[in-house]
């Protein structure tokens, strides 16, 4: 299990690294092509947008485990241990229900839009839209493992107390 988990984390990190690098490279290339070469790229903007959707999908689970999804913990922290645990389980179940709905309807949506094509890249929009399903599935796995089974919490969590707000 832990070997499998490490491989999964490594794969996610590699994808995120390559993805951000690609966005940086193409973003600079887009400026260079238009301003220096006088020949604008027509695919770059679409490529970056859709790649970012996939980075979010792949990274969201780990992001959750690293404590980037901030909530209002004031009230819960004041509860006794047992009650707090119950509140966390209820919260986790609500999250899993929500993510389940996203997965179910995300599949329906992706399938229903398969005949749309990405204008510049030419591939079926199914491959873009299905990213939300992958993201919700990975999040669900992380939420279930962290909150229901108490495993797979990233050791880096303490260093990442701040959450998504960190970027503001």
């Amino acid at each position: 299990m832990s070997k499998f988990w490490r491989a999964y984390v490594a794969a996610v990190e590699t994808f995120c690294f390559a993805g951000i690098a690609a966005i940086l490279f193409v973003g600079v290339l887009q400026v260079f092509a238009r301003y220096v070469l006088d020949s604008s790229l027509f695919w770059s903007e679409e490529f970056m947008r859709y790649l970012m959707l996939w980075i979010v999908a792949v990274g969201a689970g780990i992001s959750y485990s690293r404590g980037q999804f901030l909530g209002m913990r004031m009230a819960v922290e004041k509860l006794p241990q047992g009650m707090r645990r119950k509140a966390d389980v209820v919260a986790a179940i609500c999250i899993l229900i929500f993510l389940g709905v996203i997965v179910w309807y995300g599949i329906a949506f992706s399938w229903g839009t398969r005949r749309q094509t990405a204008i510049a890249l030419g591939l079926s929009m199914f491959w873009i839209h299905i990213s939300v399903v992958v993201g919700a599935l990975l999040l669900a796995v992380h939420v279930a493992l962290n909150e229901l089974f108490g495993v797979a919490r990233s050791s880096a969590r303490a260093e990442h107390l701040m959450g998504a707000e960190e970027a503001l």
């Binding site: 990190e13 995120c16 690294f17 993805g19 951000i20 690098a21 970012m52 980075i55 979010v56 990274g59 969201a60 780990i62 992001s63 959750y64 690293r66 980037q68 999804f69 901030l70 939300v132 993201g135 959450g163 998504a164 960190e166 970027a167």
Partner: peptide, 20 residues
């Protein structure tokens, strides 16, 4: 460099999810 790129992706994921 690797850590900077990866944590960028991870932080951004959470923001994008909120925007979604």
């Amino acid at each position: 460099l690797k850590e900077a790129f990866i944590s960028t992706a991870i932080i951004t994921s959470a923001i994008y999810f909120l925007v979604a």
